[in-house]
Structures are given as structure tokens and as C-alpha cells.
Amino acid sequence: MSKNNAGQFNELATLYEDTAHWPFRKEIEIPSVLQAIGDVEGLSVLDFGCGTGMYSRWLKQRGAGRVVGYDPTKGMLNYARRRAEKESPGISFVTRLSPDLIGQFDLVLAVHVLQYASSGPELQDMCADMVGLLRPDGRLLTLPIHPSYDPRRSYYERYGLRLSADDLQKPYVDGGGVRIRLCKNGKQGSVFAAYWSAASLERALGQAGLRSLKWRELDAPECAALGQAPKELHAYLQKPHSIIIEGVRARDPQ
């Protein structure tokens, strides 16, 4: 599997961890993901592309059994290790997927990772890795860039996020480059990602052996209706930059 895009995260650990407190993640993404995951008591979970380990710590604190965080970027994993050993001991963080992890997990979570596959074969490999870690009937939950995100550069800026497609005229082309920038209080960082259409994502996940695919829009689970969400979140909720895809690993290998 290519990890060409992973190295660009080495300097971004603290800024990235900070995003967990930004409204679009804190009020929308994180509660949506946790709601979609449901009860994790006793489950074995692998957090694929775990970054600073924010979700790994949440899952451990919510009663998950075995929790493994995987990320090829050393800078991210260092943050994850240092913080988890103080706040959620017992998580193992790894920089490579060893064969003994294959088929071991009830749940694989991969938040904001699929967009770092920069070609079709890389996307396929990444999906195969994610699904391969699941035991039969195990669940995958992943959040790519939303296939119909708003391509206007300024759209997400008020949330500390800027997405700029390399080709503004054709933002929805498979494998097209998207620069993602994060900015808050004068700190900023940017990474290169790729856009994948719904059809390509479904195909890659399906070929990897995932069944019963479901798409779930992000919402603000604390608020009964969009109208009740804080006003400043409305624009994000109308066009979230990410979406949840969920599925289960088929029993019979393809």
C-alpha cells in the first residue's frame, strides 16, 4: 500500500488534534460517528489512520476491548502514544499492519483517510486493507470527502477548513487533487488529498468484500432538526465536507 500522502502529516499532530474542538467536528462529525458506531462494550476495534488517536481514546474510554490504532505517520503516532498513555492506557499503536491483525476486528473505523489514496489502485489497496482486518460480519465505518462537497474555496472557511480542488472547473473528477487547509488562531497546515466519487468508493469497497453499504449524512445528533442546530452550523450541515459510509464484511471471501 502506498503511504505517499501520509508523511505530510508529520508536523500537523497538535493542530489536527485541536480540530476535535472545532464546531464542525465537535458538534457534528464526532457525535454523528459515535452515534453510528453505537455500543462498543467489549468490541475489538482498529482505528485505521488513527492520527493523534482521538477516536481510539474515545472508544477505549467507552468500553471497547482491544483497541489498535494504526497510522504510518510517525509524528502522528507519537502524539497518539504520548497522550493515550496518560489518558487511556491499554491502546496499542502501530505503524504497520502485521499479518496477525488480519481478520481480528469487530469494527474498523477509518475517519478522513480514504482521501489520501492518490490513485485508483491505491484506493483499492486501502479498502482491501481495511476490510481485510475485519472478521466476517465485522463492520467498517469510513468517512471520505463527501462526493458532493461544496467546491467553492470559501465555503468551509468559517469552520477553519478550506478545500480547494486543483481544477476548480471540474472538482468532481475521480482522483482529482484537493488541497485541504486547516487554520485557527494563526496556526495553519495543509495537506494534499484526492476526490473520489460515490461510484468509485462503492466499487472499491465492494471489491474489497464489503456488503450492505449504507451512506449516512452527518448531522447534529443533539439537535432534533436542522433548524434547531446553532445557526453558525447551518451552512456546514447543508453541505458537509464528509460523509459516513458503513458496511459489513461478507462471510464468503470474494
Binding site: T14, Y79, E157, G160, C183, N185
Partner: peptide, 29 residues
Amino acid sequence: MKFFPFRSDASHAFCSGVSQKLSDMDEHE
């Protein structure tokens, strides 16, 4: 929380400084 402004990508240089105590720094960082 202040999310603006996005600066140009030229701002990649490092800047260094001296603090008088460790507690000026963030533990996790």
C-alpha cells in the same frame, strides 16, 4: 475561536524563541 485569516502557503519558515518556563508550553504539543 478565530478561524481567519488563511495565510498564503509561503509561510513555511520556522521561527524560534526563548520562554522562561516550561509551563508556557502545551504539554501534549
